[in-house]
Write a protein that binds this DNA or RNA. Structure first.
Length: 545
RNA sequence: GCGCCCGUAGCUCAGGUGGAUAGAGCAUCAGCCUUCUAAGCUGAGGGUCGUAGGUUCGAAUCCUACCGGGCGCACCA
């Protein structure tokens, strides 16, 4: 309906001699301002140097609207034009919601666009902590939003299974193995002190036999390299699975080395004349592409920096045919963005190809006090601990309810509260209440007819709730375009508030038949939108709580 | 020192491609239970949108400077 109105306004602007003017058509924030509002007159007035209200009057004169769309128009404030939508138009929206069902809010504008969303991508050196949980929730939600707008999405995890940190992990595990058979052993400098390696060592000995500990150190450590990574990956996968996050592909850094992608990437950059040698090292001239200093690709000792395999990995994403590569990174990596972007430009990729969403830190609060985390000592709140305490729904919701680039306070007490103060509970409760109506009536909601007389909805709350439902597709589109799932949690809370208010004020069952039928349809539509929003974010939509 | 992010109600935060009287939740205060879940609802108070300039008919939003907080500035990963 907004499209029809927008086109009509565009044609009116054309008649007034401004064919390509950009204007805003939005939902009115205030019910006194009708259902829709546009600033078209004010924008035109600026160009034509006349009074906005006078222009608004001219627009309304030349505006040709199809019948049955708008009941009433008004010029208001500094020159806004407000529209009151006809009841028939709202009735059509109700039918559209019910007709689309679990696809209501989906779009197809992303059709044919292939997107790679890479997230979590934590080193396989220990369990996931809460920060990874936020990245996981965000990446998964971004991926889902893009799918809902028609994109073809691959969820990918980049596994840093090469490099010096894996050596230290292997040495640390070997030390725990020695310890487990009663020998004294030291965790190496920069190694991993966490308790989890003790458990891994015990399981390893059980599986491989006690003789494993008697291997020569070199061989023992070598085998620990593989076994340690495997053990951490298993734990991480279990944690992610119970969090409802699943990947289409795990990409290994080691594999990038093994298949010679490093050399190819180097050759690619060299062929473009963008590398140079200085002080025995090989550099990439990233300053030509917006970075504030050039970066080393190959150190003077002959080994590669992390930067080079990372470029190779993104080349690989590009070669696999993705139109966009979206990376979800922790805030501590944001300084790394300019050099990777520079590398992408150096390779001639369009700027839209590479995007990074930064996730800020999570502060966990209990009883109003911060729960301190220290990775160095090996004591930190793991994602597992968090899920065990709050359940996956609350954890996911809390991670998503703030903008990713602002720090998050995760209030454990609030997340586990079964009351309206808890936003997850509040939204799920709204869904459960809608389901409750059908349960009591002993009606299958999917059989409720959408073909109802909207005049039979007597309360303003009926109309307000329905209008809110019709905003859902705009919210999913905006959230997908901006890669901002928090827009959806915010919308769901607003919708839940209206739903609870409507439920309280407007009875459904036992009303006159026409009213009951209309409200059953409205309850069905509300249930659909709440369920779609929750499902999209990876949460359950319970029928009872 | 340089770069990026942030600064909005007592608290936690939306709004940020310039638009109408700056919003929500929590907290506070005042009310409301013969109900399809009170696990709920209604109302009130509460603001120099960090500060100072600038652009504009119009700035929380854009620009500049400054103040405060976070993160980053490796031939680490």
């Amino acid at each position: 309906m907004t499209d029809v109105l927008r086109e009509a306004l565009g044609r009116a602007a054309e008649k007034l001699g401004a064919p390509d003017v950009e204007f805003v058509l939005e939902r009115s924030k205030d019910t006194g301002h009708g259902d829709m509002a546009t600033n078209l007159a004010m924008v035109l007035a600026r160009v034509q140097k006349t009074s906005p209200r006078a222009v608004a009057a001219k627009i309304l004169e030349s505006l040709e609207l199809p019948p049955g769309l708008v009941d009433k128009t008004a010029i208001a404030g500094p020159g806004f034009i407000n529209f009151w939508l006809a009841t028939d138009e709202l009735a059509a929206s109700l039918r559209a919601i019910i007709g689309a069902g679990d696809r209501y809010g989906a779009h197809d504008y992303g059709s044919g666009i292939r997107v790679n969303v890479e997230f979590v991508s934590v080193n396989p050196t220990g369990p996931l902590h809460v920060g990874h949980g936020r990245g996981g929730a965000l990446g998964d939600a971004i991926a889902s939003l893009l799918e809902w707008s028609g994109h073809q999405v691959t969820r990918e995890f980049y596994l840093n299974d090469a490099g010096v940190q894996i050596d230290r992990l292997a040495q640390s595990l070997w030390a725990r193995v020695q310890e487990a058979v009663g020998r004294s052993a030291e965790i190496p400098e920069g190694g991993y002190h966490g308790e989890y390696l003790r458990g891994d060592a015990a399981r390893l000995l059980e599986r491989e036999g006690r003789a494993f500990a008697d291997l020569p150190e070199e061989e023992g450590v070598r085998r620990c390299r593989v076994l340690a990574v495997q053990a951490q990956r298993e734990t991480q996968d279990q944690d992610l699975a119970s969090f409802g996050v699943r990947f289409d592909l795990i990409s290994s850094e080691q594999a990038i080395y093994d298949r010679g992608a490093i050399g190819k990437t180097l050759a690619l950059l060299h062929a473009r004349g963008l590398t140079f040698e200085r002080d025995g090292a090989l550099w990439l001239r990233t300053t030509d592409f917006g970075d504030d200093q050039d970066r080393v690709l190959r150190k003077s000792d002959g080994t590669y920096t992390y930067f080079l395999p990372d470029i190779a990995y993104h080349v690989d994403k590009h070669d696999r045919g993705f139109d966009r590569a979206i990376d979800v990174w922790g805030a501590d990596h944001h300084g790394y963005i300019p050099r990777v972007r520079a590398a992408m430009r150096a390779l001639g990729y369009p700027d839209e190809f590479f995007h990074v969403s930064i996730v800020q830190l999570v502060k966990v609060l209990r009883g109003g006090e911060e729960v301190k985390m220290s990775k160095r000592s090996g004591e930190f709140i793991t994602l597992r601990d968090l899920i065990d305490e709050t359940g996956p729904d609350a954890a996911r919701y809390f991670f998503l309810m703030r903008r990713a680039d602002s720090p998050l306070n995760f209030d454990l007490d609030l997340a586990t509260t079964q009351s309206d103060e808890n936003p997850v509970f509040y939204v799920q409760m709204a869904h459960a209440r809608m389901s409750g109506i059908f349960r009591v009536a002993e009606i299958d909601p999917d059989t409720v007819s959408a073909d109802v007389q909207l005049d039979a909805l007597p309360a303003p709350e009926d109309r307000e709730l329905l209008k809110k439902l019709t905003a859902f597709p705009e919210i999913t589109a905006r959230a997908a375009r901006e890669l901002e799932p928090h827009r959806l949690t915010g919308y769901l809370e607003e919708l839940a508030r209206l739903t609870h208010g409507w439920y309280h004020k407007c009875r459904v069952l036992g009303e006159p038949p026409a009213v009951e039928r209309a409200r059953l349809a409205l309850a069905r539509a509300t249930r659909i939108v709440l369920a779609n929003g929750l499902t999209l974010l990876g949460l359950t939509a319970p029928d009872r709580i």
